[in-house]
Every structure is written in structure tokens, then in C-alpha cells.
């Protein structure tokens, strides 16, 4: 492709008089992408998350040993070596393999929480924003009440009642994390509710249900995605905390938080047993934080450096 062709394509994308909605949308995406890729830290975040996905997908191939069955006789609490990169735990299991398989549980938690919490928030926020009046006042009061709770402690109490287990941990985290999404969705809804566009749809006789579902919800998606991405690290940390307290994933699942808990007893002598999974949590959370920051800066220039 000639330099000239690239130049004109760039101009077409950056045109301030787009000829079609398609061109405008692509142009916006292009600008956002340029802003995003100009931010090296955000890029690192993206790489980390892609890495996480790859590791989770190919865990079977990547892991040299079984994550759950160890060699109790010959290889308990071995220090890191060529055979066991991160050493072995008290049951003789290879920590490196367990961490690789653990990535699946991390993804499992964040994806499920996002799938449960984001739609709840979206629904509450859009309905409150569109309906206004008492509906809005009551829904938002409930949202604010939940927002004022200590999330971790509440999740803890929930799991205590529901019984330990990774599914219940997911549920408890989801129940405590929807309120910010509701606030965001409501704010977005309020900005478009009185727009000519929505008025036109109303005139055409669309039902409120349809308007909220087809016309308002899609507009809230992008800010919601940013917020969910920014929350991912928090979700991972909460899940790991629950795992550490023995409320999340149960043995022998190779969940990182639970792995730290089981390594705690030997931490003064065999620090790597607890050290390695914690490092994995740190890297993945960092990845989500960097990615979220980058996305926010790229898609929402107003919040630029704040």
C-alpha cells in the first residue's frame, strides 16, 4: 500500500465532516485507538489480559504437571528448580501448574460476576433514569444504601450464610458490586432521555420497555464496560480474599487465594508456596487496572488525567 493511500485513509477516518454514520463511528474508534495505543502502560495491561486468556485456554498444554495430584513421597515443599519452576506445595503438587490452571478460576469469577452484576446495574439504572419520579427516587435510594455498605464484609457474611464455595463467592460479590453500574447507567440515561432522538422514537409509538431496551441500554454500554474493567481488579482481590479465608474455592481447586491460604502455614520457611500465587494475582489485577485506565482515557477524554 502506498504512503499516499494510507494518508487518504487516515484523512477519511479523521474527517470532521463524516459522510455516513459508519464513517463517524469508525473515525471515533480510530481516534480512541490512537489515544489508547499511545499509552504504553495501557498496552502492557492489554498484553497481560491477553496472556491470561491464552494461559487459561491452553492450560492443559502449558502445565507440565497435574494441578490436583502431587507426589506426596518425593516432592513435598521443594524449592523452585528447573523441574518445578515455582517449587511444590505441601501435597507435592507443582505450583507452576496449579497457577496455570488457577487462571481459569480467576476468569471464571470475573466473567460470572460481570455477567450477573452489570445487567442488574444496567436495568436498575436505566429504569430509574427513564421513569423518573418516585421510581427513580426509590431505586436510587436502594442503590445508594448498597453503595454505603462495606462490600468485602457483606460478601463475607453472605458466603457465611450460603455456605463456602466458589459459586456462592461469585454470587456474594455480584450482589455487592452492581450499585456503581446502576449509577452510571442512570447518569447516561438522564443525558439522552430528553434528546430529540428519544422523542422521535416515542412519537413513533414505541413502548417504554422497548425504548429502554433497544435505544437507551445500548448507549450506556461503553461507559459500563470501562467501569466493569476498572472493577475487575477489585473483584479478583475480593474473590482471592474470600478464598484466603476459606470461604471461596474449596480444596483441591487451584484457586490463587486459597493457594495462598494453604501456603500460609509454611510461609516463614517455604515462602514460595504462598508467594507465587499472590504474585499471579498482583500481575492480573495490575493488568486489569492498566487496561481500565487506558480505556477510560481513550474513550472519555474529559476524565483525561484524573
Amino acid at each position: 500500500m502506498s504512503a499516499e493511500a494510507i494518508q487518504t485513509r487516515r484523512d477519511w477516518l479523521l474527517s470532521d465532516r463524516p459522510a455516513s454514520r459508519m464513517q463517524a463511528r469508525l473515525g471515533r474508534a480510530y481516534v480512541a485507538w490512537r489515544r489508547f495505543s499511545a499509552n504504553p502502560l495501557a498496552f502492557v495491561g492489554l498484553l497481560i489480559i491477553i496472556g491470561l486468556l491464552v494461559v487459561a485456554a491452553f492450560a492443559d498444554v502449558l502445565a507440565p504437571y497435574s494441578p490436583t495430584i502431587g507426589d506426596l513421597k518425593g516432592s513435598r515443599l521443594l524449592a523452585p528448580s528447573a523441574a518445578h519452576w515455582f517449587g511444590t506445595d505441601d501435597l507435592g503438587r507443582d505450583i507452576y501448574s496449579r497457577i496455570i490452571y488457577g487462571s481459569r478460576w480467576t476468569l471464571y469469577v470475573v466473567i460470572l460476576v460481570a455477567i450477573i452484576a452489570a445487567p442488574i446495574g444496567l436495568l436498575v439504572g436505566t429504569v430509574a433514569g427513564y421513569a423518573g419520579g418516585w421510581t427513580d427516587a426509590i431505586l436510587m435510594r436502594i442503590t445508594d444504601i448498597f453503595l454505603a455498605f462495606p462490600k468485602l464484609i457483606l460478601a463475607l457474611a453472605f458466603v457465611a450464610a450460603l455456605g463456602p464455595g466458589i459459586e456462592n463467592a461469585v454470587l456474594a460479590i455480584a450482589i455487592t458490586s452492581w450499585p456503581p453500574y446502576a449509577r452510571i447507567a442512570r447518569a447516561e440515561t438522564l443525558t439522552v432521555r430528553n434528546s430529540d432522538y428519544i422523542k422521535a422514537v416515542q412519537l413513533m409509538g414505541a413502548s417504554p420497555f422497548r425504548i429502554v431496551l433497544r435505544h437507551i441500554m445500548p448507549l450506556c454500554i461503553s461507559s459500563l464496560i470501562i467501569r466493569v474493567t476498572l472493577d475487575m481488579a477489585g473483584i479478583i482481590l475480593t474473590a482471592a480474599g474470600l478464598g484466603f479465608l476459606g470461604l471461596g474455592a474449596q480444596p483441591p481447586l487451584p484457586e490463587w487465594g486459597a493457594m495462598i491460604a494453604s501456603g500460609r502455614r509454611f510461609v516463614l520457611d517455604q515462602w514460595w508456596v504462598a508467594g507465587a500465587p499472590g504474585f499471579a494475582i498482583l500481575i492480573v489485577s495490575l493488568g486489569f487496572n492498566l487496561l481500565g485506565d487506558g480505556l477510560r482515557d481513550a474513550l472519555d477524554p474529559r476524565s483525561g488525567d484524573q
Binding site: 482481590l237 495462598i260 500460609r264 504462598a274 499472590g278 494475582i281 498482583l282
Partner: peptide, 21 residues
Amino acid sequence: LIGYSVPIFWLGLLGLVLFYA
């Protein structure tokens, strides 16, 4: 960013290993 991303209980354990043990 690291403060936002690190599991507090893990950092505590490492702190104990280093500063106490």
C-alpha cells in the same frame, strides 16, 4: 497502581517473612 492491585493478605505474609523472620 500496585497498591490497587496487590492482595493485602499476601503482602502482609511477605512482610512477615522479610521484616519479622
